[in-house]
Design a protein around this nucleic acid. Structure first.
Lengths: 193, 193, 193, 193
DNA sequence: CATGAATGAGGATTCATTCAT
DNA sequence: GATGAATGAATCCTCATTCAT
């Protein structure tokens, strides 16, 4: 299953991927450390060189996933666009990131509705507060968006992203490019000035 | 904490409430049957008179919670209103239901991101498909709403509800009546004809 | 191996005996809960109905053993004797108790040289302080014993008891009735007025 | 904490000290090889260059500690004294050795009440049999001591030493020079001719 | 019906030991 | 020689479930 895993970073990667995949399929409770290890191609004890406990593994995996997500949505090429286009692009980037990595969405959702969240410092908890909030604030400040509280805009943004991605992933409805555009359109129309 | 629980129905109720409360606090994994029993004021074995297994208890609890939710959002008094007002009322009813019963929202979220969902027949999974879909379809048919796919509208509706309620419950932002109205306003503006 | 064990008290007894026997043979570390359970004729989990953890089992076992020991050495028939005879009788009772129950001596010794001791309240730690100290104090007060600090007398008493019993149990030397008498004689001669 | 450790002998020393300290604090079971290594300032694997296994380390440490103890109690300056004075001096040397090196007493006690003892050849087990027995035998032969079996005298000697040192180390009673003298006095009075 | 003691499989974690560098 | 990452068997403990009372 695995080629040689040499560096520590590569091993952590393998453990993360294995955990993500299994948690999507069996849930937090349903995935024993032994299975994570096996799927990652390492011994059970090895995981404990990298993570002090299952809890730490999960919290670290959350940080890792959040980082990946931020890299996926805020990108070089998107900075050049006009605000409305950036808004739509970022929304779509996020949906697409989740659709391409369903195990990440599943993990995030489970994480947020689990008691593990409490172990994060409250600031971290607002998981992409910084970049996202700044981006939305900018929209308000520059007059692209109505003068609503950031939390309202943010909830609309995030809520529609995850509802859309989940529905797509479940197979309840296959969102095509144009459907996604319609979806962002709804919120954008609702918040634009 | 416990008055005499006589009827079977009362006992089931007590078990449901206890489960809901504990799952919110400790998660599925963190709440043993013994604790559910204790908090409900019954013996462990008693739960097994009412539910064949922990899984069945959870799935039944889901059905029960869904029922309660539907009763909370579709109500006599709301039928008389104009479509736009009904739309807003229902959205607000749902948010308020979750805000008043945070353990229900927490349970639902955990349920949907857990492997238990798989045990539901797929139709059931679309948890308030019938009433909700019909209501939205009616909006499209009667020309109140743009001719979008029901899934798009539905995702927008549901996604914003849960993002809003979660943010309020976490304490990240306290949505006041007027904030909620602004929030529905955004979607309504986005989908209305 | 076991007849029906009905009462809770009987089960605790069985667990205690099993633990005592195994700890003597394999040490604290060398005796897993599973083996204790097996030897006691119960399931592993059952032990946890009676004791919250291995540590608690061991601490309780210490209390139980101490109780048994006190009952063995302070007895009805000994109260009637003259002080010197009581002194000798009690010393001999204790040695004989340990010789007849080597697993108790072994357990006690291991317990006192383990970190478990720290979990006892310091008063308890002085394990037969009360009865024993009172008895020795009485000897001093009534002028049978030289006016030495109780701790000195007590150390002499206890130290010789355990050195004697251990040596007998190891098989390094078989103390006969008369040898034991000589042994107490040494201390008695050393402390008597 | 660690200066350069160059010679093999110095490394062994460091390992012994580290083991002694940790075992006193956490017990045999509570001190992993990795911690011993860390505290000694070497790598885990390094210990295995010097000792084939944890068991061997412990047995060797016992031999080392016994050697140190013998050097501490039988000394040039004490040979010149009269028998009674030698007896008392040796007894006091031993108590003082333990009081100054509580980790050694703790280790010895744990060692003797553990299954490790079994791995020693039985003669060795009688840990200072030779020098000590000879010394006591001499006392009997020369008529300083009553004609008792060596085992009786020896048990009295050893038992009081360890009971005294333990009580002092625990802090239950602080034996001053004069208290120690009283203590040896008791045994000496009990066995002298 | 209700009880809760008993069960034992299953899971997180530890740690002595090995071995490639 | 020295290192310390990797191993995986072994241990403590939990908890869903059963069943005799």
């Amino acid at each position: 299953m695995n080629v040689q895993l040499n560096t520590a970073a590569e091993k952590k990667q393998a453990i993360y991927q294995s955990t993500l995949r299994l948690i999507r399929e069996f849930g937090f409770h349903g995935t024993p450390m032994s299975q994570i290890a096996q799927e990652a191609g390492v011994a059970t004890g090895t995981i404990y060189h990298y993570f002090a406990s299952k809890e730490e593994l999960i919290v670290e995996l959350f940080r890792y996933s959040k980082e990946r997500m931020l890299n996926a949505i805020f990108r070089e090429d998107e900075r050049a666009l006009s605000y409305p286009r950036r808004f739509m692009t970022i929304w779509m980037n996020l949906v697409e990131h989740y659709i391409q990595h369903p195990e990440v969405l599943s993990f995030m959702e489970q994480f947020f509705s689990s008691p593990y969240v409490k172990t994060l410092y409250s600031e971290e908890c607002v998981y992409f507060q910084d970049e996202m909030s700044n981006f939305l604030k900018q929209g308000v400040d520059e007059g692209h968006i109505k003068p609503l509280d950031i939390n309202i805009i943010s909830a609309a943004f995030v809520g529609t992203v995850s509802a859309t991605a989940k529905r797509h992933i479940n197979g309840r409805f296959t969102f095509k490019e144009e459907d996604l555009k319609k979806m962002v359109g709804i919120i954008w129309d609702g918040i634009k000035n």
